[in-house]
Amino acid sequence: MKGATILLIEDERQIRRFVRSALEKEGLRVSEAETRREGLVEAGRCQPELVILDLGLPDGDGAGFVDDFRAWSAAPVLVLSARSTDYDKIGVLDAGADDYLTKPFSIGELLARVRALLRRGRARPGAEAARVSFGDVEVDFSLRQVLRRGEAVRLTPLEYRLLAVLVANAGKVMTHRQLLHEVWGQATGDNSHYLRIYVGHLRHKLEDDPAQPRHFLTETGVGYRFQL
């Protein structure tokens, strides 16, 4: 992770200051931009391995930046959002951003997200492990087998597909829309309750306490995050 270049697009100087110092202490290189336009130019110049993008930029919405950036780079994008009810972030995540942090955030949270995203970025492309284990669950994708405490867990085809999509995007926020699209093949609003029901099934089959999940996490109003 050391030496990776991170582009920080944020218009508030004091926030840039502490984010930069925290990242540099981790041995990362940081370049800064204050506006969306400047950010795009800077991204083209420094080829970042991760972009941290503030949603309250003076010159326009984050979704536009992600659209433009995604046209030529697959590097992960971490969004900083002003509040939990800020629905703009759903648009940015749908557009291809990978994760978000709600302000105010602690340095610990920030670094955890950054590390996870850099790891994901490095692991690409397409090198998903055939075997994944989390908690007391083991999934072997080559055998289509799910074991919990050594015993086979029976999943329906849709549950299995949902599990596969979530695991493949571990650590990343998946919006409802993205999951519906990947698992059901469409992003219709009519079926969104199915997604919630199936995530509930997975929790009941694979989590110790379905009401306090540790792996299949809810990002309220946004979607889900699978955490190893």
Binding site: E12, Q14, I15, R17, F18, V19, S21, A22, G56, A82, R83, K103, P104, F105, S106, I107, G108
Partner: peptide, 17 residues
């Protein structure tokens, strides 16, 4: 919300750092 939270975020983050 954005205007109030921006300085609070800076305050929180700077103290944390």
């Amino acid at each position: 919300s954005h205007d109030v939270r921006t300085p609070l975020t800076a305050l929180y983050g700077l103290a944390d750092s």
